[in-house]
């Protein structure tokens, strides 16, 4: 039972890291980045390359973030920026980009599944059971992402500009906020977070060119159901991520994989504002 609880919390942590990048892009640009899954994969391969080069893990993770952020910035500047007026086309174009990135990775690294050694192996003794130490690290990582994110948004000038753009872009522009710069940086950070989460997943699962896709739908639905705030996103991750673990453990893993998408769709149908306060 305790193991299930810990699994639920660590799954929620991973989901939170993945969807937080999607959330911030959604908040500022009102679009869903369908290339998010590809950026998760990019981060995983960055981690693979980094660890093959023998870099320490504390460098591998920032490397993955930087790679993702660079890809994101390029995407925003070359594709997304031209499609602000056509949001559905923007998501279709990011989807196309996702396939392009996936194929490029396949061409460079091959189709085969690869593995990355976890930086921390073994188990820790927690409340009387042995539990994977690396999964505990994930909880810490999620907390760090949440704290850094909140500090960035609430404590910095860039965060203030970003919140202003989210609330009323026209007004923010009138006040001298360079909203295209805010969009560029946001998209870069969001993509960087996707890559970061990709790097964090690698020790838990294998690395292959389509590894990001299974996470994508869950992340989409979590962002939609969260209604746009970081806090409600965390709540959604814990509730629905926990439910996913319970269903996977006690019912059937395949059904577990669908839990988030189905539950979120039903929640949104009954309560269109999702978990956001009215």
């Amino acid at each position: 039972m305790l193991t299930v609880t810990l699994d639920a919390v660590t799954t929620a942590a991973l989901l939170f890291i993945i969807s937080s990048g999607l959330l911030i892009v959604f908040g500022v640009m009102k679009i869903i980045n369908f290339a998010h899954a590809a950026f998760v994969t990019v981060g995983a391969y960055a981690a693979l390359v980094g660890s093959q080069l023998g870099l320490p893990w504390v460098l591998v993770v920032p490397l993955a973030f930087a790679t993702g952020a660079l890809c994101g910035a390029l995407t925003e500047a070359t594709i997304v920026r031209r499609l602000y007026q056509r949001p559905l086309d923007a998501i279709l174009a990011t989807w196309g980009l996702g396939t392009v990135i996936g194929q490029l990775i396949t061409l460079i690294f091959g189709r085969e599944v690869q593995f990355v050694q976890a930086p921390i192996t073994g188990t820790v003794d927690l409340f009387g059971i042995d539990y994977s130490a690396y999964r505990i690290v994930l909880i810490a990582a999620a907390v760090i992402v949440a704290v850094v994110f909140t500090m960035l948004l609430n404590g910095t000038r860039l965060g203030l500009s970003t919140r202003a753009v989210i609330m009323n872009e026209m007004l923010a522009q009138g006040l001298g906020v360079d909203s295209s710069r805010v969009r560029l940086i946001t998209f870069a950070i969001g993509s960087g977070l996707a890559a970061l989460s990709g790097a964090l997943i690698t020790p838990l699962s294998s690395v292959d060119p389509n590894m990001g896709v299974p996470w994508l739908v869950s992340a989409f639905m979590l962002v939609m159901v969260s209604g746009g705030s970081l806090l409600t996103l965390a709540v959604s991750c814990i509730l629905l991520g926990g439910l996913q673990v319970i269903v996977s453990t006690f019912v059937n893993p395949i059904l577990g994989g669908l839990t988030i998408a189905i539950c979120a769709a039903i929640v949104l149908r009954i309560r269109p504002e999702g978990f956001a306060r009215a």
């Binding site: 174009a93 989807w95 396939t99 392009v100 194929q103 061409l107």
Partner: peptide, 20 residues
Amino acid sequence: PYVWELIIGIALIAVILAFP
């Protein structure tokens, strides 16, 4: 095999941007 998928992806982006 993979180049073909790549071409389709690039073609999609190009069409959306330039020839909706």
